[in-house]
Design a protein around this nucleic acid. Sequence first.
DNA 1: CGTCGTACTATACACTGTACGTTAGCGACC
DNA 2: GGTCGCTAACGTACAGTGTATAGTACGACG
Lengths: 216, 216
Amino acid sequence: MARTPRNTLSSELVVRTALQVMETKGADGFSLRGVAAELGVGPMALYTYFRNKDDLYDAIRDHLMALMPPPPADLPWPEQVRAICRDLRVLMLEHPCLAQLLASRPLSGHETARVAEGLLSVLRSSGLDPETAARTHTTLFTFVLGATTWEIQMTVEQSDPDALRRLRASMESLSSREFPTVVELAPELARTSGGQQQFDYGLDLLLAGLTARTPS
Amino acid sequence: MARTPRNTLSSELVVRTALQVMETKGADGFSLRGVAAELGVGPMALYTYFRNKDDLYDAIRDHLMALMPPPPADLPWPEQVRAICRDLRVLMLEHPCLAQLLASRPLSGHETARVAEGLLSVLRSSGLDPETAARTHTTLFTFVLGATTWEIQMTVEQSDPDALRRLRASMESLSSREFPTVVELAPELARTSGGQQQFDYGLDLLLAGLTARTPS
DNA sequence: CGTCGTACTATACACTGTACGTTAGCGACC
DNA sequence: GGTCGCTAACGTACAGTGTATAGTACGACG
């Protein structure tokens, strides 16, 4: 057997390859065996560097979070918050698997902490007390997570013509007597869902509520 | 072979059993073979009623959405919105698999439309124009989805002592020089994340932003 | 040069979803 | 009442999955 020489692997290399496989085959088509094959290595070789698949997921997540730009200084704090949230959305859109990685596993890792530090310190230095800062952080994070996850979902779905056709069919099967508002607004919902405008609309609502409650 | 008599199955029965399996074994331990076994039937029997696993997922989702209570009338519209969002959160907490079912598949189905109709009609009759109503609906839905998905995630994680221990370890490994705010607020984050209070905090921000922009 | 730890391999197991072809129970019709 | 056809449920099979366990050869170090 043409045994691969030792020390050709490293956790860095495994993570990079895993990420590449994820972006190529999608998060669903991702498998340890696929990564191993890409590396020209047996499936069990990965277990030298990661305890299991979830462990590798965590590493990929942190690898992606490293791509988050630093928060822009020299702006009023609501604008800084807005920028961070937008940056996270953009990163998730560029790497759709990130959405699933963030939603399905608890946060951990150095780079993830770095991003949290950025947002939390802005909130704290804006005058929010510790509890409110923590609550606001969680609210903003889960908002971005939910909104962007949904946005990705929609765009994936609309790129599959078969699924799109079935979705249209199920929409048109709705009685406009039973669900008048849904039928009326279906075009609006389809048109507006997704996109930066939709995201900013929700983010603006949150920030408006937030600035309204902070003492001047 | 003791062949089971014909017409012992029905889509209703399959969905109910599938839901039961999901709540028993968790959404991850769910499998078609598990459902079939529970029904005392071969795996392929399910394909008479559902085209594939995703199709069954959609049916389960709609089955759960049927449990959403009707929106309470005779309240100012922001309170109606609040009630609907809270009801959806409660339903998701009672049936944790619902979170994944909502996040991973496009919406469809009769009961799902019923819920959407409830929220949309409140928004419309509050005076919002069609586009804003649609945007607001999407914002509220994705907020509830993100916040509650995260809440479920946290509670699941905190019930697994092994994962909890590793999470604490990774928290304590953070340098308080590099991440002072994260370290400072870690207790707050752990204490406040999850729970109705956290949910209501975010919901209040959204509603405050919303009422601030509606012409009296 | 010998030895030891470990990075990688091989094999195996218990699963998964589902494509394909078969069979038998039931309702309907003669 | 007997027969036929439809189709619900079956059995088999395949290509995958994650990972437990045991083995093997290579690189570094004494």
